[in-house]
């Protein structure tokens, strides 16, 4: 290899390494901002009922509910009509937000420690965190994807993935009665969380 080619090769390697680091840092920063926004909004809300209205726009801005619903439904998703997909996304978004809020007490401040992020594949970043809430420690890993901006696409709590948890249930529903059955069970779960 000629010295000039070798130099170019080394320079490109350094550049790629630098870009990967920048990407990971960007995703980490995005996640930290999103988490802080949610905590600040929750601190200024006194009741659980008002929390959904306050937190929903922040979560919708930072979580890709489209991707989350698609991943959670699994192979059956391709057999959904466009209207059914839209309805499923809307219901799943509401279900996740209501489930999230039901675990959250206004005034109780969680302490989140961010650990070193990793890049399992280009355009994907995993940020492990430790959450201290109401005296208990939880290991929470956020998975982010870059789809024209960084979005959270999965949350793994104590080794259990949100996507995997719902995929098992949706798959069983889909095998039982197709898209209609999935939407019906989603509607029921959303109503129960009201």
């Amino acid at each position: 290899m000629k010295p000039r080619t070798l130099l170019l090769f080394l320079a490109s390697l350094t550049l790629i390494g630098g870009m990967a680091r920048a990407t990971t840092e960007e995703a980490e920063k995005h996640l930290q901002t999103a988490v802080n926004e949610v905590i600040t909004a929750a601190d200024h809300t006194s009741s659980s009922s008002a929390l959904e209205t306050t937190v929903r726009p922040i979560l919708e801005k930072n979580i890709s509910f489209d991707a989350m619903t698609r991943h959670a439904v699994g192979p059956g998703w391709r057999q959904f009509t466009q209207e059914q997909q839209k309805e499923a996304i809307h219901l799943f978004t509401t279900l996740i937000i209501r489930t999230y809020i039901s675990k959250f007490t206004p005034g109780e401040h969680p302490i989140i420690t961010f650990k070193a992020a990793s890049t399992p594949a280009p355009g994907r970043v995993e940020v492990p965190t430790t959450l201290l809430y109401k005296g208990s420690h939880y290991d929470v890993t956020y998975r982010l994807e870059n789809t024209g901006g960084w979005y959270i696409t999965d949350v793994v709590i104590e080794g259990v993935s949100l996507i995997a948890n719902y995929r098992t249930q949706f798959d069983a529903q889909f095998k039982e009665g197709g898209a209609i059955s999935v939407i019906r069970s989603l509607t029921r779960s959303v109503d129960e969380k009201r």
């Binding site: 991943h71 399992p120 594949a121 994907r124 995993e126 998975r143 999965d154 793994v156 104590e158 080794g159 259990v160 993935s161 996507i163 995997a164």
Partner: peptide
Amino acid sequence: TRITMTEPAID
């Protein structure tokens, strides 16, 4: 291909 969506063993 590397599968990135994984769930570790539960402790």
